[in-house]
């Protein structure tokens, strides 16, 4: 289980990185933390001609609170974000969901932007980005940038709006809004596994942005009104996701979780597991 051969580029600046992308284009893969890509390369499910390693680009390593959003550079790791002192104040949904992302060891190298670029439909960070209505910032030649809303960025399974000559330079998560409540809940087979169903909610005074991961081919967000019949809205949502059976969970189970876990999440009820606190066991 060894990767096929590839040319390796390690640019020092974003400009340099983009130039390489323009030169090598579609046959290049960008690697930052490599926590998804390296496994795929080892299995030879991908045999790119070139690897463009952006992990050493210092100018892309930052967490900055700006006007209304938290900007996270493309070389910033998940661990660095989790250790950011103001995370719970700035973007509480991230503080809730980041511990669900992989493990301590993979968060040490895995980047925030990398997870979003990979667009795994079960991953937590794309779900949060879409739910909060964040943005992805892409840059191409001569400093031209595009900003794409999180909801539009994910185009399907492992597929995004990024063009081959574009580099994701940062993602932007909107800062906590006053009087909003943020909640996250996930069911996975084991701790740290890909979600069977992950739910994220940004509960405002009138509206709820409700995101579902792990079910459709991308994170799906619906705006629910607090005046709606939530049970009915969740049922419509559950059925609209084209849930699939796989080896670990049935489609009906996934729909059940969207409806029932969704209802409890919105109502702020703890699950029985949390309430019973049966772990660590006696």
């Amino acid at each position: 289980m060894k990767p096929a051969a590839f040319d390796y580029y390690r640019p020092r600046t974003r400009r340099e990185a983009i130039e390489v992308l323009i030169e090598v284009g579609e046959d290049a893969r960008i690697v930052a933390g490599g926590q998804s890509l390296m496994a795929v390369l080892n299995m030879r499910l991908s045999q790119p001609r070139a690897l463009v390693d952006i992990a050493a680009i210092d100018e892309l390593r930052y967490i900055e609170r700006r006007d209304g959003y938290l900007a996270i550079g493309a070389a910033t790791t998940q661990a660095e974000l989790l250790e950011y002192d103001f995370l719970a104040d700035d973007v509480p949904l991230l503080a809730e969901s980041l511990p669900w992302v992989g493990h301590f060891q993979t968060r040490n190298r895995g980047t925030v932007c990398g997870s979003i670029a990979h667009a795994d439909p079960s991953a937590e960070l794309p779900l949060c980005l879409a739910t909060l209505g964040g943005e992805v910032v892409l840059e191409t030649r001569r400093g031209r940038t595009r900003r794409i809303a999180g909801g539009d960025f994910f185009q399907g399974i492992l597929t995004t709006e990024r063009r081959p000559d574009e580099l994701i330079t940062e993602v932007r998560f909107p800062l906590k809004q006053e009087h909003h409540i943020y909640r996250f809940q996930e069911v996975a087979m084991r701790h740290g596994d890909f979600a069977i169903v992950a739910l994220a909610a940004d509960i405002g005074e009138r509206e709820i942005q409700f995101g579902v991961g792990g079910v459709a081919d991308r994170p799906i967000v619906r705006c629910l009104s607090r005046d709606d019949d939530l049970a009915e809205a969740l049922n419509v949502l559950a059925w609209s996701l084209d849930a699939q059976n796989d080896a670990h969970a049935s489609a009906a189970y996934r729909r059940h979780l969207v409806r029932e876990m969704g209802r409890r999440l919105l109502a702020g009820e703890t699950t029985e597991e949390e309430a019973a606190d049966v772990y660590p066991s006696r």
Binding site: G34, M38, A39, N42, Q105, T106, N108
Partner: peptide, 24 residues
């Protein structure tokens, strides 16, 4: 495992525990 799940290959790189199968 060479796909980052088992953790047997974990080493510390620049102070951080890292899967050495997921790093070149």
């Amino acid at each position: 495992c060479e796909h980052g799940v088992c953790g047997a290959c974990t080493v510390i790189v620049d102070g951080r525990a890292t899967r050495s199968c997921l790093m070149l």
